[in-house]
Structures are given as C-alpha cells and as structure tokens.
Amino acid sequence: MTDISWLSSTSFNLISILLVLTIAASVFQGFFRGGSGSARHFVAMLVEAGIAILSMLLAWKGVQLVSPWIQTWLKGLNLQVPAVEISSLKQAYYTVMTSLRDFPLLRFGVIFLLGYVVIKQILNHVVDLLLGRWLAERYAMPNGSHSFLSSVSGGAIGSIAGFVRALMVIAVLFIYVTLFPHSMVTPYIESSHMYQKGAKEVISPFTGDFIAEKAPVFTRAVEQEFSNILQRKYEVLDAKIPNNIADAAREITVNGKTDEEKAKLLYTWVGSRVQYDWDKVKLYEEQRIWKEQTPEDTFNTREGVCIDYSRLYAQMARAVGLEVKVVTGLGYDGQGGYGPHAWNEVYLKETNSWVPLDSTWESSGGNWFNPPNFDQTHVRDV
C-alpha cells in the first residue's frame, strides 16, 4: 500500500492549490481573451457541458431499453466455454461475452459508455451545423486589440468560468469521497477548506441524500461484480480439466459423502502436497520475472505460490462437481502488514452458502477451511 502520510505533514493542501490554480488560470485566460472572447468561450463551455449532460441522460435511458435485449440475445448464443485447450484470443472472447451476459453492472457500464460517445458525437454535429462558425471561433487566439476595460471584463467572466470548473472538480472529489470513505486519500481531500466549503454549501445541498444513501449500496455491488469478473477469467482459463487432475480429485474424495467433506479432503490434499515455491517469489521480487504456470504444472511439479494453489484446487473441485471460485486480494503477512494473495471459496449445498478456504496456508498450521474471522486476515480485491 502507498503511504501518503507525508502529505498530511505538509503546511499546504494540494487539493486547495489545485482549486486555486483552476480559478486563477480561468481568470488569466479571460483577461487575455477580452470581454467578447471570454463571453464567447464561457457560453461555448456551457454549451459543451449541456451537450455532455444531455448525452448522459439519453445514454442512461437508452441503456435501460437496450440492456435487457442484449442480455436476451447473449443468452440465446448459448455460450459454453469448451472443455478443451483454447487460444488466448478465444479465452478473451469467452471472458468478455459471458461477463457481459451475466454481470448487469458491467453490461450497463459498457453500453452506457458506447451510447454516450455516439450520442455526444451526434449532438456535437448538430450544434456545429447550427452554430458552427460562431463556435469555431471560441478558441481563436486574441488579436490584442481589445481595451483594458475589455480585459477586465474578460477576467471577471473568466473568474465565473473558473468557479464553475472548480465546482466540477469538487463534484468529482465529492463522489470519490462518498464512494470510498475509507480510502487513504479521503481524509486528505476532506482536510481542504476549499473542498469543504464547496462540498457542504453547493454540492451536498444539490444532491441531497441521494448520493449518501445510494453510493454505499452501489459500491458494494461494484466490488462484488468486479470480484465475479476476476473469477470468470480463471473459469475460462482453466476450463479444460486434465485427466490426471480429474482422476486424482475423484480418488481423493472417494470417501466424501457431502460437499463439505469433499471440499475439506481436497483442501488438505492440495495444502499438504504442494510446496510453496520461494524461488518463484524471489525471481519476481528481484527481477520482475513472473513464471506463469497452469494447474497441471502445479500438479506435476508439486510447487507453486498462492494463485497456483488456488487454481489447482478450483480445477480439482470442479472435477468432482463442486462450485468453486478463485479469489484474489490481500493476505495478512503475520508482521502487521498485508501482501498480494489468492484463495478459494466453495459452495456447499448442505448449508446453501459459499465458504472460504486457504489451501496455501494449510501447511502453516491451524484451520484455514472456513475458520471464524477469515475476513480479518483476507481482504478481497476492490
């Protein structure tokens, strides 16, 4: 994690400086453009803002109409990841297409972005046809012939434009702070007096309780969907289960009567049979060389790191009919910090629930199959 504590120890706030520079730059621009040039530029800025807002509204409405139709169409394709080795291009295709089919927020975001770009281009062309010549001059260089009074009035108009731009920056920061209240950057943003004034007196009254009420729910939904997309990547990548892995998984779980018993038997086997590959870690830390390996490589060599343990466990679990996920995030290092880590979650029909397990840590002692407070040592990717 990045330590930003040095920012708090400084006597100035970079957020406030950014806002001041935003306003100052607009004032100087207005002064040099003159009154008429600044007025033209300010109106053009408002027109562009209006086009952007209208484009977002139309794209939002369009997504609500189009998204269900696209989901139905994708389901009609009956996309099934083949249980054979496929090329990287096909892996990417199945990951993207099945993710768009199964994950509504991702589908919504992609369609919204595409719709926004297309609609904005159309509206820009319409505006250019109506106001083309006038708008074409909005960024024209000043000819230097305007009077001092014109420069002063231009500066005044520029200051208004600057405040509008500063409020736009504050609005973006306000959304970030609301979505990520526990971020390391959030306290620093909130320590800016200029941000506080703009957020409390303008942005917050304008939005009311909408963002405060909806943002946490939206954030949790995004986190969950992002985790599912990462999981889909490994599902596609490891769709083909080699015969030797499948045979071994069936032999290991032959005495397992329930999903939980089978999942525990595989957890113990992977954790005790695979050795942690410290040379692989050293190679990456010292030379930034990552030794990619498949679950079959891990099975054959009996060596790997956490992601290798997790991918092998996932393949073995699927071979005996268990639903399983590969989860990535941060794991407690035992020294007060956290580092990149991977583990699994397996679905148990008996309890109708997903339970976590960490086969990498099995050999270190203790029970890491659905122990209490698992989330205190494991933090999912966000």
Rank of each mutant, 00 (worst) to 15 (best):
R138C: 06
E190V: 00
T377L: 11
I307T: 09
Y195N: 06
V305I: 15
G115W: 01
I86E: 10
N370E: 11
T219D: 04
S353G: 08
L237H: 05
V185W: 10
E213C: 00
I289T: 06
K325L: 03
D102F: 09
T219C: 08
S11P: 05
A171E: 09
G198A: 11
M316S: 02
S147I: 00
T10N: 03
G132C: 10
P82N: 08
F210A: 06
S9H: 04
R250Y: 03
G154C: 03
E350W: 03
E201T: 13
Y195W: 13
A317D: 05
V126E: 09
F180P: 00
I211E: 06
V254P: 10
N228G: 09
G109V: 00
S67Q: 15
R40G: 11
A140M: 05
I203T: 11
R288M: 02
G198T: 01
L330A: 12
G198H: 05
Y234E: 06
T2I: 14
L237G: 06
K233Y: 14
Y276P: 12
W343F: 03
L123I: 13
W73N: 03
N243W: 04
A239L: 00
G304P: 07
L149V: 00
G35A: 13
G304C: 03
V177W: 08
K262R: 12
V172K: 02
I15R: 12
V169S: 11
R165N: 14
E362F: 12
V270F: 08
H341C: 05
L77N: 08
Q335C: 06
L266Y: 01
G256L: 02
P242S: 07
K325A: 03
D308H: 06
E137H: 11
Y284E: 07
L266W: 01
S36E: 15
I86Y: 09
L79I: 10
T268M: 06
V185G: 01
Q275L: 10
G155W: 04
V152M: 13
V254S: 14
V382S: 13
V346A: 06
F163W: 08
Q71A: 14
V346S: 05
P142N: 07
E260D: 10
P181R: 05
N124S: 15
A317L: 01
T328E: 10
V346Q: 05
S150E: 14
E350L: 02
L173S: 00
A314Q: 04
Y309S: 02
T351W: 13
V236G: 07
S204Y: 12
W73T: 07
K214Y: 14
V324S: 07
T72Y: 09
I241M: 03
